[in-house]
């Protein structure tokens, strides 16, 4: 495990890679919160924040969905803030960011090292993005006008764990291949 951790530290130590990972993480977190409905329209303009329900922080609403504790209005947007939903989104965002950058690094590596052309990391992004909308799949399908929402509800509880597992596997494969070629890039 130590070589893999060293690769991650190397990635984070390079400003361009750290910036890319952070950027992907922030974008993914916002997208996840938007798709699951924590961030939505309905704001009346201006800035306002109230946190009246801290006692509900650990109260579950559904699979991997927790009660909001506060309401943040930002212009036209409203964020019903749940600490656990945000931590979950950011953790998945970090994994997506690491996968994306590790995948890009592998892809850019010289082919003769046997490292180039890998799409493992990039493939792992698909379930991660799906998981972002999984918790509220029916609502998304309402927007799209698709009648299969009912069928998807049954699989929603497993999408987040499956996405995390696939992201971890994808990252592990990418990091292993990078570790094998360490010092060559």
């Amino acid at each position: 495990m130590r070589p893999l951790a060293r690769i991650i530290l190397t990635m984070l130590a390079r400003p361009a890679m750290a910036l890319a990972i952070t950027g992907v993480m922030v974008l993914y977190t916002l997208l996840y919160l938007w798709l699951t409905g924590d961030i939505a329209g309905g704001g009346a303009g201006g800035w306002n924040a109230t946190f009246p329900a801290w006692e509900r922080a650990f109260q579950s609403r559904g699979p991997f969905q927790f009660e909001p504790v506060g309401l943040v209005s930002m212009g036209a947007l409203v964020w019903t803030f749940s600490p656990l939903n945000t931590v979950l989104a950011a953790t998945m965002g970090l994994l997506v960011g690491l996968n994306a950058v590790a995948g890009w690094w592998l892809w850019r590596s010289p082919r003769q090292c046997g490292l180039g052309g890998s799409s493992t990391g990039l493939l792992a992004l698909i379930p991660a993005f799906l998981a972002g909308g999984a918790c509220c799949a029916p609502l998304i399908l309402i927007w799209l006008g698709l009648p299969i929402a009912g069928a998807l509800v049954g699989v929603a509880p497993v999408l987040v764990p499956v996405a995390v597992l696939l992201l971890l596997l994808g990252l592990w494969f990418s990091l292993q291949r990078l570790a094998r070629g360490e010092g060559l890039t």
């Binding site: 939505a40 704001g43 329900a53 909001p68 409203v78 019903t80 609502l139």
Partner: peptide, 13 residues
């Protein structure tokens, strides 16, 4: 209501 919700927005339409 004792809960935090975005009451300005209806999730269905």
């Amino acid at each position: 209501t004792g809960f935090v919700r975005n009451y300005r927005r209806d999730p269905y339409g």
